[in-house]
């Protein structure tokens, strides 16, 4: 049962092996990949940055909530930091459970909560050389977006 931040590339095969459990009849995994576009703009690369100590604390809370809400046997979530290229693996989540329903539901819960709550930030590098911190745009002093 773990959540961690990783500064180096992830190894999905090793992560999946860590879920092995004789009680499990289902394993659902989610991989978040770096894609080449966002909001209609061509993306060339991403930087992920995390507030590591609090990210791992909040991630551990999400894992604990997942175990309380769904009858799952094992949960692993790892999120990358650093500079990533198109196609790189940014986040890996794996859930094992006795039956498939709980594994699908728990996996979806984990990725949704991680995206909404864990202090990780993403900077996109566009083909035209511009960059942007996602979700941090401001239009002006009196805008709340």
């Amino acid at each position: 049962m773990s959540f961690r931040i990783a500064a180096s590339p992830l190894d999905p095969a090793a992560l999946k092996a860590s879920l092995a459990d004789a009680h499990a009849g289902a394993c659902v995994t989610f991989e978040g990949w770096v894609r080449d576009h966002n909001d209609g703009r061509p993306v060339q690369a991403l930087d992920y940055e995390a507030y590591g100590a609090l990210a791992e604390k909040e991630g551990a809370r999400i894992v604990a909530e997942t175990l309380a809400k769904f009858p799952v046997t094992r949960v692993v979530c790892v999120h990358r930091t650093g500079s990533l290229k198109i196609g790189d693996l940014a986040v890996w989540i794996g859930v094992a459970s006795a039956h498939r329903g709980a594994a699908f539901d728990a996996c979806r819960y984990l990725i949704d909560e991680v995206k909404a709550r864990v202090p990780i930030w993403k900077k996109e590098h566009y083909a035209d050389g511009a960059t942007e911190w996602i979700n941090c745009a401001t239009r002006g002093e009196f805008s709340d977006r």
Partner: peptide, 28 residues
């Protein structure tokens, strides 16, 4: 965040505290 944990606004401070302001997150 104060001293490594989320703190509700306005988040009172005392001498020696460690403060982090957390912009909108974008993991995943």
């Amino acid at each position: 965040a104060v001293n490594g944990e989320f703190a509700a606004w306005p988040a009172p401070l005392k001498d020696g505290d460690e403060v982090v302001f957390i912009p909108p997150v974008a993991g995943g």
